[in-house]
Every structure is written in C-alpha cells, then in structure tokens.
Amino acid sequence: MIRFFARRLLVMFVRLVLVAIILVIAIELGYGVLGNSDVHIWEVRFSDPVVPLSELSGDSTWEELVPLMKNSMLIVGLAWGTTLLVGYSWGILAARLRQFKGHHFLLVPWLVLASVPGFWWVIQVAIYSYFEWERPGFANEVVVESGPDLMQWWNAVVVAIPLGVLGISVQMRNVSDRIREEAGLPFVRGLHRAGYSNSDIFYKNILHRLTGQLIRLSDETLPLILGGLIFVEVAFRFEGMGNFLIRSLQMSYFPGIFVTGIWMAGIIGLAALIREVIGHGLGDD
C-alpha cells in the first residue's frame, strides 16, 4: 500500500509540474504574444506586493490568501459533497428503475437545472434577497463583527447550489449510464434465466461488480465545480480564489493567475490520489 501511495504521489507531482509548465506557457502566450504586454512571466517576483489582494482583503501580503482559500474550500466542499451524495443515489435509482418506461424523467430535472447559467442564478438570489426579504443581497454587503457568522454560510450555500446542481447532473448521468451498460451484458440475462430476482441481480451482482468503477467516477465532477466557481464567485461578489483569479487577470498580475491555477490543480490531484488509494484498498487497480 505504501509503495502504491508513493508511486501515485510521484505521478501526481509530475502532472502538477506539467500543469505549471502549461500555465506558464499560456500566461506568456496570452499576455506576451496575444496581449502585447511589455512584462514577461520571467520578470515577475513573488516577493512584490500582491496587488489584487489589497482590493479584496485590504492587505497585500500572501498570508491574506489563506482566508480566500478557506472560503472557496467551503464552497467546493459543499458542492462536491452534495454532488457525491445526490449524484450517486439518484444515478443508482435511475438505473434501478431502468426497466420502467419514463425512467429518464428522473434525470431530466437535473439536466434542466444544469442549463441555467450559474452567474445569472446567484444574481437573481441576491436581487430577491435584497428586495423581497430586505436582507443583504450580494456577499460583500455585510460584515459580521461579533457572534456566529451565519451570513458566511448563507453566502457559501448560494454559491454552492448552482455548482452542486451542475455536478449532480453530470455525476448521476455518469453513474446511471455506467450501470446501464453493465446491466446490458449477457451475464445479467443468464442470471434472469437462472431465476435470480431483479433486486438480487442489481444489488448483489451488478453494483457489487461495479464498486471500483463507480468509485473511479467520484472526482470527475471536481474540475467542473472548480471551473464554475470562478464565474459564480465573481457574480455574487464572494471573496474567494475565483474572484482573486479574475482580479489578477484584469490587473495582469501573473503570480496570482499561476497560484490560483496550481491551487485548483492541486485540489483535483489530491482528490484523484485519495480516490486511487481507496480504489486500491478495495482491490480495484
């Protein structure tokens, strides 16, 4: 197990290095070549003041990035957790009911919700909250100075919902499609002929055989959630890494772009590592 973990860790680091190289090339290509910028990526220093941060949190040192990371991690945790919980259960339910006509209608509501632009959705919530409930609208409209910061949770939930919906829509389709593929194999017909009940075939054979493969699907939605985070945080004026990335882009602050890219790739890599270790523990390589 330790050898497997070390090997996968090494692979993750190699991939992260490649991501770093791709990011550096993209920044230089985007700003230096396409944007005709006079500053090149090799000329920037990480020791200079972090200008985009001074607008977001009032301080321009790298330490101020930690609260932003925590804020974004809360959203990612909420959205991804919901995605796993609802995506798996809904996908398995849709696959279980596959023999009934109209079982696709279980998947349709999530597909419809996932078509709603997330940035527009959070703006509507902010408007409604401000005009109808007479509560703060956007995330930067109130600062809780004493007592429990319940507004932070409300803001995180508003941002996490569109990301979670997108994640659930993709996750449940992946799970349902994978199970349906397996259910179409000849061994299932054989078990039917042998007199096994539908629920025995589904839970004790199909799902049992697919455990490893279903675990493999667990982190597929994470890149989507992290990508969506960028738009939704900006739209809701939420102080997080997505907002920091966009400020860095607008100010041509290369270290900010680079750090955010590596932070996101690191989260995805870590989730993949955990998934691989769990899969290995269950005997699925």
Binding site: R15, L18, I22, A26, G30, P223, L226, L245, I257, A265
Partner: peptide, 20 residues
C-alpha cells in the same frame, strides 16, 4: 494531464481574457 486543469477553463480564460 488535462484532467488536473479545472475544466481546462483557466487556459481559456487566460488566452481569451489577456487580449486574444
């Protein structure tokens, strides 16, 4: 490697947002 980029979106944002 592409799966580590957040939906590879960052590349798109960098290249489209920087002046392309």
């Amino acid at each position: 490697i592409g799966t580590l980029m957040p939906c590879a979106l960052i590349l798109l944002i960098i290249l489209a947002g920087s002046g392309g």
